[in-house]
Design a protein around this nucleic acid. Structure first.
Lengths: 114, 114
DNA sequence: ACTATAGGTGACCATTTGGTCACCTGTCAA
DNA sequence: TTGACAGGTGACCAAATGGTCACCTATAGT
């Protein structure tokens, strides 16, 4: 209906988010390396990487017959900045930290922290 | 394939992102108010708001026969924290600021800035 | 009570999307 | 140059998604 931002489309799929997780843990992996981590054929992984690359979430570099994949976090930051302004950022970050703190302590599981 | 996080599914649609933009500009709007801004029937808007609410991106409160909608930015912050750690945050934020600065100056329009 | 208004449900249809396959291109090493 | 390996393209199919409609519930005000 409006412009269909490729970044959000790319992030909509859990396999693609998992690929970003893999690159977040270790940058510069090849298609074959990534394929080994997904219960999916090489073609499926390639398609997903293509979507991520077009969205700018993954940047690639040819190295001989290999293609190395790198995570680019800038689009993620832009999502953040779209709905979290400088004034509420401190507030929201504090809420997130509080939630993480409560969950790590598990001191009172009955209390809702939403 | 993995867990299908409702937050990313919710953000995948441009109409829903536009609804978040509307609530970001002014919190606490009703369905009818939001519907007036979208070239879509009331039912479509309702469906989208339902998706956003289930994802926790929108929180609602009944006020008589009206339902007020509020933006909740916490899930957005969690997306940010998933792929941007404390160490690279400064670096990425600097890149974003630089990009915004260059675009506001419009000193080199021929350059593609994705 | 009655009527107008705000909101809600389920079914339905056109389009998009995730995943696979057969087949093709390019690079390394003997 | 020959073969093995890393990567790429287009078509194809099943499943999910966006949007609409007929119909229903609940609140405000007269």
């Amino acid at each position: 209906m409006f412009n269909d931002d490729p970044v959000f489309k790319a992030l909509a799929d859990s396999s693609r988010r998992f690929l970003l997780d893999l690159l977040f843990k270790r940058d510069g992996q090849t298609l074959s390396e990534l394929e080994a981590e997904l219960a999916m054929t090489r073609f499926g992984v390639m398609k997903h990487l293509r979507v991520l690359e077009r969205a700018g979430l993954v940047v690639t570099r040819r190295e001989g017959r290999e293609k190395l994949h790198f995570l680019n976090a800038v689009p993620i930051r832009l999502i953040h900045d779209r709905w979290i302004d400088k004034y509420t950022e401190r507030h929201v970050a504090a809420l997130v930290d509080l939630k993480a703190s409560l969950e790590s302590q598990k001191c009172n599981p009955s209390k809702k922290t939403a």
